[in-house]
Measured scan of single mutants.
Amino acid sequence: MAAGGDHGSPDSYRSPLASRYASPEMCFVFSDRYKFRTWRQLWLWLAEAEQTLGLPITDEQIQEMKSNLENIDFKMAAEEEKRLRHDVMAHVHTFGHCCPKAAGIIHLGATSCYVGDNTDLIILRNALDLLLPKLARVISRLADFAKERASLPTLGFTHFQPAQLTTVGKRCCLWIQDLCMDLQNLKRVRDDLRFRGVKGTTGTQASFLQLFEGDDHKVEQLDKMVTEKAGFKRAFIITGQTYTRKVDIEVLSVLASLGASVHKICTDIRLLANLKEMEEPFEKQQIGSSAMPYKRNPMRSERCCSLARHLMTLVMDPLQTASVQWFERTLDDSANRRICLAEAFLTADTILNTLQNISEGLVVYPKVIERRIRQELPFMATENIIMAMVKAGGSRQDCHEKIRVLSQQAASVVKQEGGDNDLIERIQVDAYFSPIHSQLDHLLDPSSFTGRASQQVQRFLEEEVYPLLKPYESVMKVKAELCL
C-alpha cells in the first residue's frame, strides 16, 4: 500500500493539533497551500530580480507567473513527485505547466533550498508574528487579574506546605514575570531571523556568478533584492546548502521555554482548584465526569500541561538535527523538520489560546482563602504575639514557653481530632496574655502579614508589564474561544 493518505478522510490519521486544537490561522501558515504558494512567490521574486539585473526574462513571463501564483494543481504535483521522487522539481514542473512561456526560467540558477529553506524562514517569521500578540493578550488578562487582587491576602506555599502570606495578585505576578520573559525572547528570536537568500547549491553562489558572467556586484544585488522582497532586513552571508540548523534550535528553545512557563502556571491553577481557592472557567453544560456528576475538573489547565510537556520535548529534535548536518548538509534534517517545526508552533498556539481562555474567566473564592488563612495564621502570628507581650512588660522566655504549650495543644486538636485551630481562643482565655487581649485582632490582621506584596504588584505592572504590552494595544480586544 502506498504511503500517505487522504487526510480529510475519517479513515486516515490526522494530527489532533490540526484537527482538534490549533487555530485556523496557525494551521494555514503550515498548510501545503501556504507552503507551495510561497515557493511560487519566491520563484517570481527571483525572476523579477534577475530581470532587473539584466537576464533575458520578459515582462510577459513575469506576468504569467504572477497570474498563476494561486493556480496550484495539487493532484498534478503529487503525481509528479511520485514520478520524480523530488518535491521541488515536482512543483517546478507543475508551475511550468500553467506558465508555459515562463517554464524555462522558473528556478533559474537556484537549488531546492532556495524555495525550501527560504519558505521555512518566512513561515517561522509569520508563525512567530501570530504567537506574539496571543502571548501579549494572556499577559494582559493576567495583569488585569493581578491588579484587581493585588491586596487580597492568601496563604503562600513553599514545598506545598503553608508559608508566609502573600497576595493573590502577587502570586499571579510570578506567572506574568515568566511570560514577559517569554514574550521578550519570542520577539528577540523573531527579529534575529535572517533570510537564507540566493546562495546556490553549497552556499557559494557559483551558479549565479556564472549567470551574471562573473559580476560579483550583481550577485550581491540579486541576494539583497530577493531578501528585501521577502520582507527581511538581512540575509546570511555564510550558508551551506541550507541555512544553519542552529536557527531551528533557537526558535524551538524559546517555544519550549514558553511551554515550561505555561505548565507551571496551569499546575498552580490545578492545585488551587483542589484547594477550592480558584477555578478555571466551567461552562453551564460542561460535564466533569461521566460517573461523578459533582466533579469540576480543571480540564483546560490539564490540557495545557499535557501539550506543554510535548512542546518542551520537541527542542531535542533540532538539537540532534543540527549535530548531524555533515559538511554542507545531509538530508537527516528533512523529514524531522517537516514534523517538529509545525508541531512546535501548533502546540504553542494551542496552549496560548487555551491559557487566554482560562485567564479571561478565572474565578476566585475569597471566603475559602480566608478560612485557610484562619487555619494557619495563628501559628504564624506567634512571633508577633511574643513581641507584643514583651512590649507590655512580659518575659520573652516565659511567653515563648506559654505559646509553645498552647500551640501544641491547638495542633493536637487540628491533627488528632480534625478540629479547627483554636490557638487564639486559648490565648484569649489565658490570664497571662490579658495585657494584649485587646491587640489580638490587630495582630491577626492578614494584611499585616503580606509585606509589600501589593506595592510590588503595582510597581511591576507599571514599570515592566504595561510598557512591554504597549506595541500590542491594537490587538488586545480579541477574545479566545474554545470549541473543545
Rank of each mutant, 00 (worst) to 15 (best):
A2S: 12
A3R: 15
G5Q: 14
D6Q: 10
D6H: 08
G8M: 15
G8Y: 15
G8N: 14
S9N: 12
S12E: 12
S12L: 07
Y13L: 10
S15N: 14
P16T: 14
A18R: 07
S23H: 08
S23T: 11
M26T: 06
S31T: 12
D32T: 09
Y34K: 02
F36M: 01
F36G: 04
F36V: 11
W39A: 13
R40F: 00
Q41P: 13
W45A: 11
W45C: 01
A47I: 15
T52P: 04
T52M: 05
G54E: 03
P56L: 12
I57D: 13
D59F: 08
Q61R: 05
Q63K: 08
M65T: 00
M65S: 09
S67E: 06
S67L: 12
N68V: 04
N68D: 02
L69G: 05
N71G: 05
I72P: 01
I72H: 09
F74A: 00
K75L: 00
M76K: 07
A77S: 03
L84E: 10
R85V: 11
H86P: 08
D87C: 01
H91R: 08
H93T: 05
T94S: 01
T94V: 11
F95L: 09
G96L: 06
C98H: 08
P100E: 08
P100S: 10
K101A: 02
I105L: 05
H107P: 02
L108P: 12
L108Q: 02
A110S: 07
A110W: 05
T111L: 05
V115L: 10
N118Y: 02
D120K: 15
L121G: 04
I123K: 02
L124T: 15
A127D: 00
L128T: 11
L128K: 03
K134S: 11
A136C: 06
A136D: 00
R137C: 06
L142C: 04
L142R: 07
D144R: 08
A146T: 10
E148F: 09
R149P: 03
P153S: 04
T154H: 03
T154E: 03
L155F: 06
G156E: 01
F157W: 01
F157Q: 00
F157L: 07
T158K: 15
Q164N: 12
V168T: 02
G169D: 10
R171Y: 00
C173F: 05
I176L: 03
Q177R: 10
L179I: 00
C180I: 15
L183N: 00
N185A: 12
L186E: 11
L186R: 05
R190A: 08
D192E: 08
D192V: 00
F195V: 03
F195K: 01
F195A: 06
R196K: 05
R196E: 03
R196F: 01
G203A: 00
T204R: 06
A206I: 13
A206V: 09
S207Q: 04
F208T: 03
L209Y: 00
L211Y: 11
L211A: 00
G214W: 09
D215I: 11
D215F: 00
D216R: 06
H217A: 14
K218Y: 13
V219C: 07
E220R: 04
L222E: 01
L222V: 04
K224N: 00
T227Y: 02
K229V: 15
A230T: 12
G231Y: 11
A235S: 06
I237A: 12
G240S: 11
V247C: 00
I249S: 08
V251P: 07
S253K: 07
S253F: 04
V254D: 11
S257M: 05
V262K: 12
H263C: 15
H263V: 06
K264S: 14
I265N: 13
D268T: 13
L271Q: 01
A273C: 12
K276V: 06
E277V: 01
M278Y: 08
M278K: 02
E280K: 05
E280A: 13
P281T: 07
P281V: 03
Q286F: 15
Q286W: 11
S289N: 09
Y294V: 09
Y294P: 13
K295A: 07
K295H: 03
R296A: 11
S306H: 01
S306T: 03
S306L: 10
L307V: 03
A308V: 09
R309C: 11
M312L: 13
V315F: 03
D317W: 02
D317Q: 09
P318R: 04
Q320S: 02
V324C: 14
V324Q: 14
Q325H: 10
F327H: 01
F327Q: 09
D332K: 03
A335G: 06
R337T: 00
R337L: 10
C340Q: 09
L341G: 12
L341K: 15
L346C: 02
T350I: 09
T350W: 06
T350V: 09
I351Y: 02
I351S: 04
I351D: 08
I351H: 01
L352A: 03
N353S: 14
T354E: 04
L355A: 14
S359A: 02
E360D: 15
G361F: 13
L362G: 02
V363P: 12
V363Y: 13
V363S: 07
V364L: 10
V364Q: 00
K367M: 10
V368T: 11
I369E: 12
I369N: 15
I369F: 05
P378V: 10
E383Y: 07
N384Y: 10
I385R: 04
I386V: 10
I386E: 06
M387R: 07
M389I: 15
K391R: 15
G393N: 12
G394D: 15
D398L: 10
C399G: 09
H400G: 13
L406D: 12
Q408K: 03
A411R: 07
V413N: 15
V413P: 06
V413S: 13
V414M: 13
V414W: 12
Q416T: 12
E417W: 11
E417C: 05
G418L: 14
G418C: 14
N421G: 14
I424T: 11
E425S: 06
R426T: 00
I427D: 15
I427K: 10
Q428I: 12
V429W: 04
D430I: 13
Y432M: 00
Y432I: 13
S434N: 05
I436Y: 09
S438I: 15
L440Q: 09
L443T: 05
L443R: 02
S447Q: 00
S447G: 09
F449H: 07
T450K: 15
T450C: 13
R452T: 09
S454R: 11
Q458G: 10
L461D: 06
L461C: 11
E462S: 15
E462D: 00
E464V: 06
E464R: 06
Y466W: 14
P467G: 07
K470E: 12
K470G: 07
P471T: 11
E473S: 15
E473V: 06
E473R: 10
E473Y: 12
S474Y: 12
M476V: 13
M476Q: 15
E481V: 07
C483W: 03
